[in-house]
Amino acid sequence: MTRSSSPPAPRSRTSGTTSTPTYAPGLKTVDDALEIRGRVFSAFEMAELSTDLAERDHRLTSAIVGGGPTGVEMAGQIAEIAHRTLPGQYRHIDPRRARIVLLDAVDRVLPTFDPRLSAEAERRLLRIGVDVRLAATTGGPDRPGRADPGRPRPHGAGSSRDLRPRRGHEPGPATRGGSGRDSRRAVAGRVIARRLAGKRLGKPFSYFDKGNLAAVSRFSAIADLGRVRLSGAIGWFI
């Protein structure tokens, strides 16, 4: 019998809060992306059907937990949808009134990027209507009050979902901590499978970090490529 070997699917950290997937789905798989897309668009549909102004405001409020590249990009895309794509599509609501809140426990968005690029990304988020809240924690959906229907819907994103800083923990570059680590795991799995099958090993694993990139909104992105740092439209075209 021949067994195929494949690396384990990536999983989002939940920090021990068992109800996190219910209130804040991660963004690691295609299914996660489809779930978030469905929640975002259904929120506008439910707001359109509601006659209660408070309920409408609730439906039009989204909270993204994690100010890393994925969280920043998600906040920017929801803002783009609300301000550019959906206006004029509804009779009773104005999608431009949607409130997008981006939270992170650290003191700046995109902490793995150069501080000047982080500041530029934050300014861009503010210009497109994102409410950026730094040095902020959620407490987790299992804590008292997190299931309050009057609170915004949180969306977990990327590797910054665990907002509680650990003692002695410093965030590392997103690329080395994410895709580089996943690549090493995938190669390790293939090496073990080849050894068990008695096959020759391939070339040694080598990973080159080309830098970090985050698309904040349409025609606006930041790129931290070592000595080269770009922002705005130039970064977006990279």
Rank of each mutant, 00 (worst) to 15 (best):
R108D: 02
V132T: 04
R190V: 12
A147F: 10
E120T: 14
G172R: 07
R133I: 07
V109C: 09
G139T: 04
R181E: 11
V187N: 00
L117G: 04
P115V: 02
A105L: 01
V101G: 01
G172P: 00
G178M: 09
V132Q: 05
S183P: 00
R124G: 10
T137I: 12
R185K: 11
D142Q: 09
G158Q: 06
D162Y: 08
P154R: 00
D182C: 01
R97F: 07
D94V: 07
P111W: 03
R151T: 13
D148Q: 06
E120R: 15
V191N: 05
D104V: 03
G140M: 03
G172M: 09
V191H: 06
E120M: 14
D104C: 02
L102G: 03
R176N: 14
R190Q: 13
P141V: 05
D131I: 04
I100Y: 05
G168E: 05
V106E: 06
P171N: 11
R143M: 03
P144A: 10
L134D: 01
A135S: 15
R161E: 09
R133P: 04
S160K: 02
R116T: 13
R185S: 03
S183Q: 10
V191F: 07
A157L: 01
T138R: 02
T175W: 03
F113P: 00
R153C: 08
D107G: 13
L110M: 10
A157Q: 01
V130D: 08
I100L: 09
D182W: 12
R190I: 11
A105S: 15
A136G: 07
L163Q: 14
P154T: 05
S118Y: 04
G177H: 13
I100S: 01
R146V: 05
G189C: 12
G129F: 12
P141K: 04
L110K: 08
D94Y: 05
R96Q: 11
P152K: 03
R176H: 13
G168P: 04
P141F: 07
V101I: 15
L163F: 06
L103W: 09
G140D: 04
P152G: 02
R143W: 03
S160T: 14
P144F: 04
R184M: 12
I100A: 04
R164K: 12
R123L: 11
R161C: 12
R167D: 14
R161I: 15
G145C: 03
R164H: 13
